[in-house]
Design a protein around this nucleic acid. Sequence first.
RNA 1: GGGGGUGUAGCUCAGCUUGGUUAGAGCGCAGGACUGUCAAUCCUGAGGUCGCGGGUUCGAGUCCCGUCACUCCCGCCA
Length: 592
Amino acid sequence: MIGSSRYRSHVCADTPEAEGQQVRLAGWVHRRRDHGGIVFIDLRDRSGVVQLVFHPEQAEAHAAAGRLSPEDVLSVIGTVVPRDAQTVNDRIPTGRVEISVEAVEMLSEADPLPFQVEDESIEVSEEVRLTYRYIDLRRSRGLRALELRSRITSAIRRSLEGNGFLDVETPMLTRSTPEGARDFLVPSRLHQGYWYALPQSPQLFKQLLMVGGIERYYQIARCFRDEDLRADRQPEFTQVDLEASFVEPDQVYGVVEDFIVAACAEAGQSLAAPFARLGWEEAMRRFGSDRPDLRYSFEIQDWSQQALGTDFAVFKKTVEGGGVIRALVVPGGGRQFSRKDGDDLVAEAQGLGAKGLVWVVVSDDGSLRSPVAKFLEGLDSDLGASPGDLIAMVADDEVTASSVLGALRARFPKRYGLELESPWAAVWITDFPLVEWNVEEARWDPSHHPFTAPKSEHVEILESDTAAVRADAYDLVMNGVEVGGGSIRIHDTALQQRVFELIGVGAQEAEEKFGFLLQALKLGAPPHGGFALGLDRLVMLLAGEQSIREVIPFPKTASGADPLTGAPAPVGAAQLEELAVESLVPDPVPEG
RNA sequence: GGGGGUGUAGCUCAGCUUGGUUAGAGCGCAGGACUGUCAAUCCUGAGGUCGCGGGUUCGAGUCCCGUCACUCCCGCCA
């Protein structure tokens, strides 16, 4: 603890331990209750709140108290006194004492605020909160989020350092690699016409560190991607990035599980390691997603064979044509499910890419209610559905049926109020395909990135049976949120060349873009692999928030703007000229 | 790039479906009263570009068109 200053000897939360002593406190005026005679002020600092009492007998202090406004900053001298039994306040930790104030020093007066700090029952719009984020952070929600984030970061560092990882920084100004997300570019003044890029991840550098013999690297790294935003995506975000040499996936899982368990402990959550593991194919089949929320156990089921025996032409034709009938039973989802809800659900499925959707409600008497109920005899027992359940069925090719039902599965728990079966579900999704067919470009694209190693037993079928090749790549999914991913990397130049050829990167192009990495691989590269965790997402989950903006001190809005600073903003002609950069759009009109 | 939602007092919202007197409420703010409150209470008051622009109409917060911002989702995010 920092020692006393002329502003304070104690923090608010510590006052009960200083009963009987004279203390000096500093903080913000949280609330004022002015009875004309006696005046109460709740004084707030980061540690909490304590009640100040101003008696008329202390004339000077009492007069000062009468002039205070919310969020004024003060320092006070007073005596910690116990409260009478009737006036103890059990709702605050310091409620058994109060400060009888003898002197007040005003440190900073506050104008009326754009929104109230002390009344957190009012949900202020995010735009206003972000414009005055420094006021928003005074509220417990923001303060708690930043405290939790700090503790989690610290726990992760301790865990990784305990496992022998070195904290190494990699450059923020680096070269653009146009694959993947769009880069944020930075013009170079000293090399006019040349550009740096901000890193999308430290990927290449951490591999170079492995070649450099660091063996175990980690970094809490800021990363940048110039793509559209979401509740869980910001243009700049923080990754816990790590890489290790001479490892197989199991060692990476172990290291990651160690620090995830430690991070969760900071939030008072206990998670058991090792985490569950689920192959990618199985995840897609059972849950229709590579990031399934396993806090709920309901799964996608197959009804294709049974559909062949029905008179329902749509289903029969689909199966005969090589498609599948897949179904999702939503426990209790059929209660209060109207015809219109059904129409909405069909439209929703179509919006997700399905040709249609069949909905079925199992009535209380066990009968089926559905526009096509007459074709579906025995459906409920086939799928293990009970009265009150909703069944959503999609007939399509396997990929579409799975992905549509998977997307619906992710939305159903909230919509139908499903009960959590466990508070936390962490799962490794393993054995991803190495590459995916890009229909538009008619080529194989990497599922992860071009440095991901195929499973050793699949190297020989790399070209002959490409679609079947699985990678030593893995994602960590918690409660349906992809919190991180990684892979074993290619450390062999020849194999790296083969993968480049497979994904249509010619030797010359590879040399141009990644020559430095390929050269490094030739000069003694150990087998290595690693992982990157979205720190913002992890903290979001542990803080119980729905958006990573809540756990980022100064986040950007959905259009990538910062309402506080006004970034992004136009720059002057002189600045551009120095960089030899010219704008193609007319000078923006300053916002009034 | 596409779809949905929102925009009214400093803050949170009602009013819009069905156009019609002076646009309301709670909180906050200002002034006053009050010596044990802890969302203090009571009295009084100020405070509005109904996001912006255009249109329809005798008349628009309300209807229509456009636009901007915020937000959620799809695309995108190797």
